[in-house]
Amino acid sequence: MPDWALYALASLVGYLAGSVPFGLVITKAAGLGDIREIGSHSIGATNVLRTGRKDLALATLVLDSLKAGLVALGFSLVAGPEAGMVAGASAFMGHCYPVWLGFKGGKGVATYAGLLAFVTPLKGLLVGAPVWLGVFALTRISSLSALCAAVAVPPGAYLLGERNPVVLAGLTALSLLVFWTHRANIDRLMKGTEPRFGAPKTKPEE
């Protein structure tokens, strides 16, 4: 199979896998209605947690991570890390812009983490996970934790030895996209109105 066809296949499979809206499916199956009608209106695990169901949020987190991670792993094993990166990045795009939901999905943090876990775990994930956990422990703000981790991953992976140009370019592009999908959160962070977990809400979220 020529390279262009392989990457096209990786993109298609990755996008379709990523576009499965697990958060929406799980919450509807649990009788909680449409997750897009509450909180941040996202289909991701953080918004599922706002239903009060930690088990459903955890299930969403795991499944959203695996849908990127497994396609990345599969294509990495068959055709190398470049194809794995393309598949995982396409899953990220599918999660954020699923065709089934009018291209309005989640913010991509869990899918990004899943990709890191299977493409460059000892470089990207080893940087991103501690940064996310550390910032969240200090601030209790999920979006700020994700943004800080996104900033740290590409240079951190490079410093730890990642030299594949396709992987590094993919990590950089996805980190920039995390900022794009969190633009409303960034606006609230700048205004000081971004909610913290465990704190009472003082105003409706946008």
Rank of each mutant, 00 (worst) to 15 (best):
F136D: 15
V119L: 07
Y112G: 06
G105T: 05
V127L: 08
G114W: 02
W132C: 05
L116P: 15
Y97R: 03
A110R: 08
G134S: 07
T139P: 15
G106C: 04
A117R: 01
G105A: 12
H95P: 13
L125Y: 00
Y112W: 14
V131T: 01
V127D: 12
K107N: 03
L125F: 04
K123D: 09
K107V: 06
K107G: 05
R140K: 15
F118G: 09
K107I: 00
G108A: 01
V131H: 06
Y97T: 10
R140A: 14
W100M: 12
K123A: 15
W132D: 10
V109H: 06
H95T: 00
L125P: 01
G102A: 06
A117G: 12
L133Q: 01
L115Q: 02
L122C: 14
L133T: 13
P130H: 00
M93Y: 13
Y97H: 15
A91H: 08
F118W: 12
C96V: 04
F92Q: 03
P130A: 05
F118M: 11
G114Y: 02
T111K: 10
L122V: 07
P121A: 02
A91W: 12
V109T: 13
V135Q: 11
C96N: 10
F118I: 10
L115S: 03
F118D: 12
A91N: 15
G102L: 02
T139Y: 14
F92Y: 12
F92V: 13
A113C: 11
A129V: 03
A117N: 01
Y112H: 13
L115G: 05
L115F: 01
Y97S: 03
F136I: 09
A91C: 14
V109I: 13
L133I: 08
L125Q: 00
W100R: 03
F118T: 12
P121C: 06
M93N: 14
G102Y: 14
W132H: 10
H95C: 07
